[in-house]
């Protein structure tokens, strides 16, 4: 049997390092010895039943279940007592509210899992409102927004490096689809989404993609990125103004966005000059060197 040189304790046979300080036991095998009767065997010989929740979480879960059950019973009794009262939304709201508290208790602390659950629960609640009261249009907007939120905020966090391209494509397409869906909800046609939203969307996507490609290729300063984004935004606004004018059947190129067009033009000129001057300077610098 060996001693730990750091702690001074004697180590039982078979221990190759001290459990108190992790100091490795150096010496011949006879010194370490063989473990005749281990403290506890290494292999599991029976099914292990470990509870998944600690005391506090279990308590909160039980309280939530208790109060949700009480609320549901109360709602059902009220529905029987008052025939005019439809408890559907109240029941769904109670269940969803309880689930909102329970999800972070029982789920692993993962942003994707918890966000996804919250999106699903909110969708269920809004869906119940939409079914119960179809004239509430805002419910449909909310449903579309929830799906868009999940695609833009949660999908990127999903694991899988090789699907980055697919994720980006889905994110880009989803924005366009969202615009189409909101148009459909509002007017039951694709009138302004094709005439106004689509050109802005296409313009923005193309030039932002170009910017992203340029940034991935070489050194682009933060100033240039910010100015480029402002320029793209300005021109997107101008295009939007022009398309809106055309959609409403009015005369003229643009109406209120003249100042934005001027700003956009100045920024574009500045960026072009900056880029050109840099290339000219580098050209002469290389020639001199």
């Amino acid at each position: 049997m060996a001693y730990c040189v750091s702690c001074g304790v004697k180590l039982a046979s078979g221990l190759e390092k001290c459990p108190l300080c992790n100091t490795v036991v150096y010496g011949p095998p006879e010194l370490i010895g063989n473990s005749q009767e281990p403290l506890f065997p290494l292999s599991q010989q029976e099914e292990i039943i470990h509870p998944s929740l600690d005391k506090t979480r279990k308590a909160i879960l039980e309280l939530v279940i208790t109060f949700v059950a009480l609320a549901l019973v109360t709602l059902v009794i009220t529905a029987f007592a008052l025939p005019t009262f439809n408890p559907l939304i109240a029941i769904v709201a109670t269940l969803v509210g309880g689930a909102f508290i329970v999800v972070p208790l029982v789920c692993k602390p993962s942003y994707v899992k918890i966000s996804s659950w919250y999106v699903v629960l909110t969708t269920i609640l809004v869906l119940s409102i939409a079914i119960r009261i179809p004239e509430y249009k805002w419910a449909y907007y909310t449903l579309a927004s929830l799906v868009l939120y999940w695609i833009l905020a949660v999908l990127p966090a999903l694991k899988g490096k090789k699907y980055v391209g697919v994720k980006i494509a889905i994110m880009i397409l989803s924005v366009g689809l969202f615009l189409l869906v909101t148009n459909l909800i509002e007017t039951h046609t694709l009138s302004w989404s094709i005439a106004v939203a689509l050109p802005i969307y296409l313009f923005t996507m193309i030039f932002v993609s170009l910017l992203v490609w340029r940034v991935s290729k070489g050194k682009v300063g933060v100033t240039s990125i910010v100015f480029s984004l402002i320029t793209i935004a300005s021109w997107a606004v101008v295009i939007g103004d022009h398309c809106a004018l055309k959609y409403r059947g009015k005369e003229g190129l643009i109406s209120w966005s003249l100042s934005v067009a001027i700003v956009g033009s100045c920024l574009l000129l500045f960026l072009l000059l900056r880029f050109s001057l840099l290339r000219v300077r580098n050209y002469f610098h290389n020639r001199i060197v």
């Binding site: 702690c7 304790v9 180590l11």
Partner: peptide, 24 residues
């Protein structure tokens, strides 16, 4: 293992012979 280490090394310092085994 801070608590275990402090207690058992304290015992050793006072000339108490300590032999340990573990499932860690």
């Amino acid at each position: 293992v801070d608590l275990e280490r402090e207690v058992l090394t304290s015992l050793v310092d006072k000339q108490i012979r300590v032999e340990i085994s573990t499932n860690r």
